[in-house]
Design a protein around this nucleic acid. Structure first.
Lengths: 243, 243
DNA sequence: CGAAGGGTTGAAGTCAGTCAAATAATGTGG
DNA sequence: CCACATTATTTGACTGACTTCAACCCTTCG
């Protein structure tokens, strides 16, 4: 059957892609099978350990990539070292901006992360050819913009308590491996207290205090510092000030 | 000459557009002369007084528009009334998101503003036809995303003093009617103290106090509460923590 | 003139930051 | 597997930046 398709000029999606975590929903979903084959020829899977940079702020970008699993944090730093995480990216998000060689943020793996890397020229050619791909990139940008603006409200107007609850709620609704059947969830925090603090515009100590406060109010249960159980997502959402 | 062009099927840009403030740099720059004529047939100029809504949060959008002059603020509000301005838009920015009927923010004129309105269906058809237009919209989204993330750093990590300086610097570099020859500038604040507070995640009082502090440090001169003189933009930039 | 809205200023209170120390988790070499 | 070093997190006491509450000023407008 594969042979037949090849004879007629049609191509099947590469086997790696078929099994790919990011095949659907990601940028690749906007490509035809033959484009996928083309892209796949030059793409390489890469494991990035927690804490390693994917793209440096103001660095020239050599390649683009899709997140296959794990969490990538986007951050900005001031001259004096103050830092702010400006976004979190999950599978199957696309990293990088075709045609813009400079990145305005630093992208760093928050957890152990797997990415699928594409060389710059290939991606840029494909963006030119496949309109669907451009649309997909545009819509991801819009999604990121909405998230950024939501977070501005959190940073500017919420209390420390609400900020921490907002963060936990964000993770609960993004990591969520469908195990969330009903109103309860469970997950491992992808970020250290220091990262959470940088995301929320707080200090480590305040994050810690608010976590224990949420724990004492039975809104969350914490095991091993990283594992969190949310018995009732609505309560968490409420604590986050989301209604 | 116009007649000749019409005979050959070519068309000239409409007169209104030729004189338009947003003709260059704006979305219209991505359109051919004939598309411009087409769009112009259905577009209407509208004046919006300061304080009036252009698009409501969660409201269905009846039309899109270009800002011709003035400043539009994008804001979000929490259930209990706390508010955060998540973006400022200047001419020749485009307002609205083709194909998305719901807006996640409220757009309100901060100053008296003139906009050029286009009916939804026309814009959406054109986006489908003109790839250049789609690109332009995408690149405006990316610009807004960068601005949003810059502001996240301001909201999360800067002091009240730096926030106010950042705001003034932002305005100085955006209003800037080329009169800024060298290092000094002058402008009228497009936002009230209340709006500035909502933009910076502060209270009116804190904004006021920081303004007088900057005044006493001779970084700015204030006349009539709204008119600001910046003798040295570099000093303001420094006060904003931008290096 | 008096009312109303926007802006400034002052005094007191509070939330989150800072500094410091204790405790828990993680890793390393023996 | 243990003793130790190292790092991450929690907890406490104190400080300080920003908020809150309140009064006041100034301009505008009926």
């Amino acid at each position: 059957m594969d042979a037949h398709k090849k004879q007629t000029g049609e191509s099947e999606a590469p086997a790696v892609c078929k099994a790919c975590e990011a095949r659907h929903g990601g940028i690749c979903a906007a490509l035809s099978a033959s484009q996928l084959v083309e892209l796949n020829k030059h793409s390489t899977r890469r494991k990035v350990e927690a804490g390693n940079e994917v793209i440096g702020q103001g660095e020239s970008v050599g390649s683009y990539s899709n997140i296959l699993n794990g969490v990538v944090k986007l951050s900005k730093m001031m001259a004096d070292g103050r830092q702010q995480i400006v976004g979190l990216q999950f599978a199957p998000d696309f990293l990088g901006r075709p045609f813009l060689s400079e990145s305005s943020v630093t992208a760093e793996a928050a957890t152990e992360t797997e990415i699928c890397c594409f060389p710059r020229p290939i991606v840029e050619r494909m963006v030119g050819e496949a309109r669907e791909l451009e649309r997909k990139l545009h819509s991801q940008s819009l999604k990121e913009l909405d998230e950024a603006r939501d977070w501005m409200l959190t940073l500017g107007r919420k209390t420390a308590q609400e900020k921490v609850a907002s963060f936990l709620y964000l993770i609960a609704t993004h990591i969520d491996p469908e195990k969330s059947g009903g109103n309860s969830t469970t997950f491992d925090l992808p970020l250290s207290r220091a990262d959470i603090a940088d995301f929320l515009g707080l200090t480590i100590e305040t994050v810690s205090r608010q976590m224990t406060k949420l724990r004492k109010e039975n809104i969350i249960v914490i095991e091993n510092n990283r594992h969190v159980i949310v018995p009732d997502k609505r309560r968490l959402r409420y604590a986050a000030g989301n209604d």
